[in-house]
């Protein structure tokens, strides 16, 4: 049932990309447990504006857990305490009256802070443009039912394709690695028959672009824990296997 609680927030404030940031404490009083976490921040911001203070910058858009725009470190956990849940779908009913909550932006050198809790995640787009596609110009596709895809294959590809590109995997990783993000896109395409023609090239290009921006995976598994879509770490093992194969095959083709 719905109740009203008081929270103490410790929020990272940073005026711009090149300025120093610091934590500022705010009292979030009289918050309904039916409010979402971001609605709680909306309320805090309204009160800040009333008091003549600039509101806390945080990003969100769909507030349905699918666009991947939102993402906060809440008490040191990417997207907060509820498993398989993006920040926008977290609700205050997950917290207790009197809780202290620390709110930070994603922390990774490849995600520079833009302001307060907003970061720049363009490095993820760079990985996609390196090969996260199937080359098929508009108009050149064959009839969709010409290529049967076993249901199980399609389902597994889908599990990987469910990635929302929020960057929680990077934020949660002690090495700021983007293996889960990259492996999810790789396996979505590498598993499907449509993706076979470019499989080895894609794998090499995406992995090497990833390595140019992000840290290395040392199998901590924090990414799987933090992923709001619960994408399993198994995809990383598959992607690694594909990468080794790709290195051999691509060399053969070159030779």
């Amino acid at each position: 049932m719905s109740a009203r609680i008081n929270l103490t927030l410790k929020v990272w404030r940073q005026a711009g990309p090149d300025t120093e940031g610091a934590f500022v404490v705010y009292e979030a009083t009289d918050i309904s447990t039916d409010a979402s976490f971001l609605e709680m921040l909306d309320i805090v911001n309204e009160r800040l504006i009333d008091a003549g203070e600039e509101p806390i910058v945080f990003e969100s858009d769909c507030r349905e857990g699918i666009c991947g725009t939102c993402g906060l470190m809440i008490n040191g956990r990417a997207h907060g305490p509820q498993k398989g849940t993006a920040t926008c779908q977290l609700h205050i009913r997950s917290f207790n009256d009197g809780d202290h909550i620390t709110i930070e932006p994603w922390r990774a050198s490849s995600f520079p802070v833009l302001r307060d809790l907003a970061v720049d995640r363009r490095a993820l787009d760079a990985i996609i443009s390196a090969g996260g596609y199937i080359t098929v110009n508009t108009g050149s596709a064959p009839d969709a039912n010409l290529i049967p895809v076993p249901k199980e294959t399609a389902e597994t590809a889908f599990d990987a394709a469910a990635c929302i590109g929020c960057g929680a995997c990077v934020a949660a990783c002690p090495n700021s690695a983007a293996q889960l993000f990259t492996a999810a896109k790789l396996q979505h395409l590498n598993l499907l028959p449509q993706g076979q023609a470019e499989r080895w090239e894609r794998t090499e290009a995406m992995v090497e672009t990833m390595e140019a921006f992000f840290g290395s995976c040392t199998n901590h598994g924090e990414c799987e824990e933090a992923c709001p879509k619960e994408i399993p770490i198994d995809f990383i093992a598959w992607a690694n296997r594909d990468y080794i194969k790709a290195k051999v095959k691509n060399r053969k083709l070159a030779g």
């Binding site: 108009g139 895809v149 076993p150 590809a157």
Partner: peptide
Amino acid sequence: DIIDQATAQGVPFAREYGGL
């Protein structure tokens, strides 16, 4: 044509057991 295009891009539409 849209269905063909999207399928060729790897959009994982739902499938029957026969793969269609």
